[in-house]
Amino acid sequence: MKKRPLPPERPYGMERLLMRCPGQCAVCRAWSHSRVCRDCLQRYGRPVPRCWTCAAHLPVGLGGRESAQCGACLRHAPPLDRTIAALDYSFPWDRLLQLYKFHQAVDLRETLLERLSQALDCSAPDAPDWLLPVPLSPARLKERGYNQSHELARTLARRRQIPCDGNLLLRVRSTAQQAHTPLKDRAANVKQAFAVEPLRKAELRGRHVALLDDVMTSGATLFELARVLRQAGAAHVQAWVIARTPDGETA
């Protein structure tokens, strides 16, 4: 596939200013040159053993094995070839992600991307041909002002030299927010909610694709998108997420 040139990065002006200025750690309020200080990163950002295909926690003894899977994935194989999660969606990352997602705390983007980049470096996934963010509906995008997953994806793609396009996947049906939907109903909530841009399906045929989202809970959204990509001819589909909810919890 011929890779398209990536445009120069243009971070928000306020984000550039905040990145240069020391201030308080967003967690412990200690003086720090980054939004989360080194002590808090060591305390709350340590990697844990995870399932190869859904990133759920695994017992320590299984964590070092390549392709180790949880019981749920062994019983019912998900449509994802691999899932990489940087963090648990728990204190302090749950609050920080809420700030980033709903309150335009764009100064947290660098810290979140650093955690994901570190997880990718440690996991060494196959390099994808495309990095695609989970799309928002037009109404949700208008309400929020930006797609948080696209902001993360375009920056990560630029740094890793992976083509990224926020228009290749479409959300064709508005749905209730997954966070407000019971776990048992989430798969039905997003069923047939996504599509590939009809004129661009050929760009996915036989390709390796990585989906990027901020939080993974039940996996319903990412699983549905993976099914849509496979129907369009994608050969391999991964998911890269900032945070994965601990078993039995909701985002």
Rank of each mutant, 00 (worst) to 15 (best):
Gln161Gly: 03
Ser123Met: 09
Ala176Pro: 03
Cys40Gly: 05
Leu17His: 02
Val241Leu: 04
Asp81Ser: 12
Thr181Ala: 05
Val237Gln: 07
Arg200Asn: 03
Trp52Asn: 05
Leu183Phe: 10
Val36Pro: 09
Ser174Thr: 11
Asp81Ile: 05
Thr245Cys: 15
Thr111Gln: 10
Tyr100Phe: 15
Ala153Asn: 04
Leu87Tyr: 04
Val106Tyr: 09
Glu143Thr: 11
Arg115Glu: 13
Ala105His: 10
Ser218Leu: 10
Gln178Glu: 09
Tyr146Gln: 00
Asn189Arg: 01
Val228Thr: 13
Ile162Phe: 01
Asp88Val: 04
Val241Glu: 00
Glu114Ile: 08
Met14Asn: 05
Leu131Pro: 07
Ala26Gln: 09
Gly23Met: 04
Arg16Glu: 13
Leu87Pro: 10
Pro163Asn: 00
Leu168Thr: 07
Pro92Arg: 02
Ala86Lys: 06
Glu66Tyr: 07
Met14Cys: 12
Ala153Glu: 03
Tyr100Gln: 10
Pro79Tyr: 01
Arg244Met: 11
His76Gln: 15
Ala68Trp: 02
Gln118Asn: 11
Cys51His: 00
Arg160Thr: 14
Ala56Thr: 14
Cys70Trp: 03
Trp240Leu: 11
Ala153Val: 04
Ala195Ile: 05
Cys70Tyr: 00
Pro11Ile: 06
Pro182Leu: 12
Glu224Ala: 14
Ser149Phe: 06
Leu112Arg: 02
Thr221Arg: 03
Ile242Met: 01
Ala176Ser: 13
Arg200Pro: 09
Val27Pro: 11
Leu204Met: 09
Leu222Ala: 15
Ala195Gln: 04
Leu212Asn: 04
Ala119Pro: 10
Val106Ser: 11
Glu249Ala: 08
Glu9Thr: 12
Glu224Lys: 11
Ala68Arg: 00
Lys2Arg: 14
Asp121Ile: 13
Asp247Arg: 12
Arg50Thr: 10
Arg43Thr: 15
Arg10Ala: 14
Val48Tyr: 08
Ser90Ile: 06
Thr53Asp: 03
Glu197Tyr: 00
Ala195Cys: 02
Arg159Asn: 13
Leu112Pro: 12
Leu168Ser: 05
Cys37Val: 01
Gln238Pro: 06
Leu136Tyr: 06
Thr217Val: 08
Leu99His: 11
Asp121Tyr: 10
Pro138Lys: 04
Tyr100Ile: 11
Arg200Ile: 11
Pro59Arg: 01
Thr250Asp: 14
Gly248Glu: 01
Gly71Thr: 13
Leu229Pro: 05
Met19Asp: 15
Leu211Gln: 08
Lys2Gly: 07
Gln104Gly: 11
Asp185His: 03
Leu87Ala: 07
Trp93Cys: 09
Ala72Asn: 12
Gln42His: 11
Cys70Phe: 02
Thr53Phe: 00
Pro5Leu: 11
Leu96Cys: 05
Tyr44Leu: 06
Asp126Cys: 10
Ala243Trp: 00
Lys2His: 13
Ala251Thr: 08
Ile162Met: 02
Pro11Gln: 02
Leu141Lys: 04
Val209Pro: 05
Ala243Asn: 00
Leu170Ile: 09
Ala55Gln: 06
Arg154Ala: 03
Val27Gly: 06
Leu62Gly: 07
Val209Thr: 01
Val60Ala: 15
Asp94Gln: 13
Ala139Thr: 14
Asp39Trp: 02
Arg205Lys: 14
Phe223Thr: 11
Pro135Glu: 02
Thr111Val: 15
Lys201Ala: 13
Pro198Thr: 10
